[in-house]
Design a protein around this nucleic acid. Structure first.
Length: 213
DNA sequence: TGCCAGGCCGGGT
DNA sequence: ACCCGGCATGGC
């Protein structure tokens, strides 16, 4: 799978370094990972700004906040009732297991951390991997809708490929490098937004044009 | 104006 | 083990 490096190089040359994840602290990254589930990032930013404005971008603050009040604050992010519950689940786990301390989080092994995250209701594979990579600094490759769309449109994976299969494709063929995984996923999202939208694919201008050959 | 955005869960086959 | 409806705001 030499093509993975070819794709990375093309994207990096085209877009340059991406500086992900957008978040001032690991905790803010975790919150963003929940809020962005099936949601445009610009809406997520509004919700994050609401929390910051109230001084609530903090694990112990959210731990003691009513779910209803939290829902009202994150309203612009959409799915606000379910996301409020999911955030509370995440915060409960983070505070009770790690005392809300991201340094302790990063001391766990990737395997146990991912398992713990997946056991939190509302955290699925992508959210777990995003938190492991971007908040805890573990080499866990993040797969998302853009990864699937870009790779399937270029005929690099079959339509029915699962999340774990795509994840393994990357992890089995790249060095487990946090910086590389970070940048690669960020570049895929960037390329997806600009050239591989569902209804507005710009395949003729895509930097990956012809990569399947 | 309808469709889409950096998913996930729970109930039904 | 899959499949699908539900969850919801803001932007183009």
């Amino acid at each position: 799978m030499k093509i993975l490096k070819e794709i990375y190089q093309r994207l990096f040359k085209h877009f340059g370094p991406q500086q992900w994840w957008p978040g001032e602290t690991p905790f803010e990254v975790m919150v963003g990972a929940i809020l962005t589930q099936n949601t445009n990032w610009s809406n997520v930013e509004k919700a994050i700004n609401n929390l910051k404005a109230e001084g609530l971008m903090d694990a112990h603050q959210l731990y003691n906040l009513d779910t209803e009040k939290l829902a009202a604050l994150i309203l612009p992010a959409g799915y606000y009732n379910i996301k409020a519950k999911r955030l509370k689940n995440l915060v409960k786990w983070f505070v009770e297991t790690y005392d809300g301390d991201a340094d302790k989080l990063s001391k766990s092994s990737l395997e146990s951390l991912r398992e713990e995250l997946l056991s939190v209701k509302g955290i699925g594979p992508e959210t777990a991997d995003s938190i492991a990579l971007y908040a805890a600094g573990k080499p866990s490759f993040v797969v998302d809708a853009y990864t699937y769309r870009i790779f399937s449109r270029h005929g690099l994976i079959p339509e029915e490929t699962t999340y774990d299969e795509i994840k393994s494709l990357f992890e089995d063929n790249l060095a487990p490098d946090v910086k590389l995984f970070n940048e690669y996923h960020a570049l895929i999202v960037r390329a997806g937004k600009e050239y591989c939208r569902k209804t507005k694919p710009l395949c003729d201008k895509c930097p990956l044009k012809g990569v399947e050959k």
